[in-house]
Write a protein that binds this DNA or RNA. Structure first.
Lengths: 233, 233
DNA sequence: CGATTTTGAGAGCACTGCTCTTGTTTCGGC
DNA sequence: GCCGAAACAAGAGCAGTGCTCTCAAAATCG
């Protein structure tokens, strides 16, 4: 297929990767606001206009970095999920949450890029929705496994939320009870609230033992979602 | 005091206010990234260098806007708290949470400024910590009232979190049980997780009936914190 | 080989934050 | 009322930005 596609195509993907690497380096060093196309080109020994052959605009470069960042957290979350195979549902939930937090603390600027304020004129392009959902799918997988094994205690569901819950479940996990799905979405967003507060410094001079705080809170989140410990028969 | 302080000082605070107003307008229209000192000056009919007499740098202007934004949400939250006087604790919690969310949806760019990724070289200046804590203090007030009336069911507290909880309570609300304080901090950050996801578009093409979803989730947050309904004797 | 597409290089445009210098206006003490 | 000091507006200018355009070199394909 595209394997032996001439030196040209090969060079192109190499240069594209080099640009993204250097951009990621600047992102980690200075943040998205200070990411400069000219500086990236300069560091790579090319002229700024040449860079536009690879990314039609600065925002497109950022979009590429966004996709990569989503894939990076997503991969870490999935790895944590795989590594926790066999554990009970709450433990797996906590493991994935801790993986997400660890990734965020290790890549604060990339985290800010995807879970902070939308940087450009915003409106995320279509390419991002796939990678963006990988973490969420991890949680759904945990819930599905737990539900299959009967280790779910259905959380309460407010009456006025019932239609929304049914729609949500139908769209994302038809095999799961609606109450579980909406609880999952809530816990998902709440998890990122805690991670964002920590990464963005809102816990400064307040929470000290963040590891213990986070773990306890996230365990409670699992409980709220309905995930319970139930040893295999 | 500083009341009749000459036309000079008077003009200064007027110009300062005009600059902030115009900056806020541009902020709402285009976002923090595109806020331009020159454009603000242009719109105000002055030259860009003159603006530096009022704000020594662009970041200082942004800091001023940040403080104002914190005060704005804080005021709304406090108003909601005052308006809910007499209601039971969970109802008051929900009322304040809804006020915060409403403010965020009405001022998305200002919300992004204070609860999104830190924009400048970050590290919030000292002036911001006072206004920034107003919303949190609102929640502490609710908890204190509830605790005084006995309408709190203490949430569980993990052993490894006990020292942290004691320290936290001692620093922020010595009259409250430590378990309640850490639960409060967790719920506080989780609340902003949901608001951020809604404002930043993470719920797009997913949650439709966001009002019902948010209210139900936030009610559960109150329950997690230990706030319970208990009619006055 | 020749024609075509892809790439790099350079100049240039309009814009940004910010500094410095030059006059002008306002203020407080005599 | 006068006069030095402080505050101020204005303009020019610097270094940097994203992005467009043109033009030559290089790789690709018929």
């Amino acid at each position: 297929m595209t394997s032996v596609q001439g030196a040209r195509a090969r060079a192109r993907i190499e240069v594209t990767a080099a640009i993204k690497d250097e951009a990621r380096r600047q992102l980690a060093a200075e943040g998205a606001a200070k990411l400069s196309l000219r500086a990236v080109a300069r560091e790579l020994g090319m002229v700024s206009s040449a860079l536009y052959r690879y990314f039609p605009s600065r925002d497109d470069l950022l979009t590429a970095l966004i996709v990569d960042a989503y894939d990076s957290v997503g991969a870490d979350a999935e790895a944590a999920l795989a590594a926790s195979r066999g554990a009970d549902a709450p433990a797996r939930w906590v493991a994935v949450c801790r993986a997400v937090r660890a990734w965020a603390l290790a890549h604060p600027h990339e985290y800010a890029l995807i879970y902070g304020s939308p940087v450009p004129g915003y409106s995320a392009p279509r390419d991002t929705v796939g990678p963006a959902s990988r973490v969420g799918l991890t949680f759904i997988t945990i819930a599905q496994d737990a539900h299959r094994r009967g280790s779910v205690a259905l959380p309460p569901l407010a009456d006025e939320l019932r239609p929304e819950a049914a729609r949500l479940a139908d769209e994302f996990a038809p095999d799961l009870p609606p109450a579980l799905v909406v609880a999952l979405v809530a816990a998902w967003s709440q998890l990122f609230g805690m991670v964002s507060f920590e990464v963005f410094g809102q816990f400064n001079r307040m929470v000290e033992n963040r590891d213990a705080f986070f773990t306890a809170a996230v365990r409670r989140l699992a409980h709220d979602t309905g995930l319970i410990v139930r040893p295999a028969p």
